[in-house]
Design a protein around this nucleic acid. Sequence first.
DNA 1: TTCGCCAATTGTGTATACACTGATGTGAAA
DNA 2: TTTCACATCAGTGTATACACAATTGGCGAA
Lengths: 218, 218
Amino acid sequence: MRASDLAYSTLLDEIQRGELAPGTVLGEVEQAARLGISRTPTRAAIGRLVADGLAAQLSPRITVVTDFDAGDIKRLFEVRRALEESSARLAAARGDREEFAELAQAFAAAHPEAGESNADAYYELIARYDAALDRAVDNAYFTNALRTIRTHLARARRLARDNRERLRASVAEHQLIAEAIASGDPELAAHATHVHLHNALAAILTQLEPRTPPEGTQ
Amino acid sequence: MRASDLAYSTLLDEIQRGELAPGTVLGEVEQAARLGISRTPTRAAIGRLVADGLAAQLSPRITVVTDFDAGDIKRLFEVRRALEESSARLAAARGDREEFAELAQAFAAAHPEAGESNADAYYELIARYDAALDRAVDNAYFTNALRTIRTHLARARRLARDNRERLRASVAEHQLIAEAIASGDPELAAHATHVHLHNALAAILTQLEPRTPPEGTQ
DNA sequence: TTCGCCAATTGTGTATACACTGATGTGAAA
DNA sequence: TTTCACATCAGTGTATACACAATTGGCGAA
C-alpha cells in the first residue's frame, strides 16, 4: 500500500470521526511527522482531501479541515435527494430485480432497534444497498458524485446518531424503496427515496436542534 | 501561478480539446519534460485529472486519458439532468429574480445563429447562466458536482458542435428557464430544464450517430 | 506608546536523488 | 527452437534539499 493512500485513509477517517475537528490546520510538516512519512505523500493526501471538500486552502499557506454544521447537512441532503431520487428511478428501470428483491427481504428481516450489534449490521445493509444501487445505475458519473456525498454524509452520521425509532422507520423506508426497484416501479422508487431522505434529514436536524424543529417536520 | 496549476490547466485543456486523445498514456517523466517542469507538480496535476475522471490509472504504472464516447455522453446527461433540474427548482425558490430576469432578456436578445462570433458570445452567456445558477442555489456540494459534470461536458461539445438551428432553439429554451426562475416557478424551471437537456442530448446524439466517425476526426 | 520597517523563521512549492517494482530482452540449457 | 531464468531498464513512489514567500517578532524612531 502506498504511503499517500495510507495518509489519505487515516486523515479521512480522523476527519469523519471528528478527531480532526473543523478548523484544524493541516500542516504538511506536522502531519507528515505525525504519520511517520515524508511530506510528498502527505501533500498528495491533503490535496485529495481538498478535492473532496473535507479540507480547504484558506490561503496559500494555510489548509484547514472544513466546517460542517446543520446548514451543511441541509445542503448536503439537497444534492443527495437530487442524486438518489434519480438513481432510484434509473435502478427501477434497469436494475437487477432479483438483487433488490433479496435486499427488500433483508430489510424486512432486519431489527436494528434490538441492539448495538444489530444497528451495525443495519449500517452494513445500507452499504450493501448503496453498492447495489451503483451497480444498477451503472453510471460512473453518478457513482463518483454519490461517493463524494457519502464521504461527507459520514460526518453527519457522527453528529447525529440514529435512535431506535428512527432506525426502525428507516428500515421500513428502505424496504419500500428496494421493493419498488424490484418491481420496476421508477416513480415509486423515486418518491419513496424522497420520503426516506426527508425523514432522515428531519431526524438529524431534530436531534441537532431539539427546540427548533425544521420546516416541514411532522 | 503554481507550476502544478499550470500543468493541470494545460493538460485539462488538451484533453478537452482532444489534442490528448483517449487512451494516451500520461507518463510523469514525459509530460514533465514536455511542460518544462519537474515531476512533482506534474504528478499533482495528473492526480487531479484522475480525481476528475479525465484520466484513469489502469495499473500502478500506467495512467491514460479516459475514453469518452456517445455512451458516456448519455450517462453524463443522466447526472446532469438530476443536478440541473434540482438546481433550477432551488434557484426558482430562492434565487435573485432580478438577475434571472436580466438573463432572460439577454437570451431574448441573443442571435447565435447569425455568425461564429455571436455563437461564442452565446457560449459566454451560457457560462453566465451557469454562474448565476450556482450563486442562486448557494450550495457548494451542488457547485462542485456540477463543476465535474461541466468539465466532462466540454469534451462532448468538441465531439458535437451545435448547428444553427440547435443554437436558436437552445436560446429559446434557456430564455424560458431563466423566466421561470425569475418568476419564482420551481416546477416550470425544472421541467423547462428537463426539456432543454433532452433536446440538447438528442441533438448531440443525432449528430454523432448518422455517420459514426470512430475517433480522431480532428 | 505606537507605528513602521527589517530580519528571521516557518511553511509551502519545486527539483532531484534514491528505492523499488514490474516489464522486457537476452542468453543458456533442454 | 523453445522455454526459463537472470539481468537490465524504465517508470513510479518516496525522501530530501533548496528556493521563495509570508508572517511574525523585535527594534528603532516619531
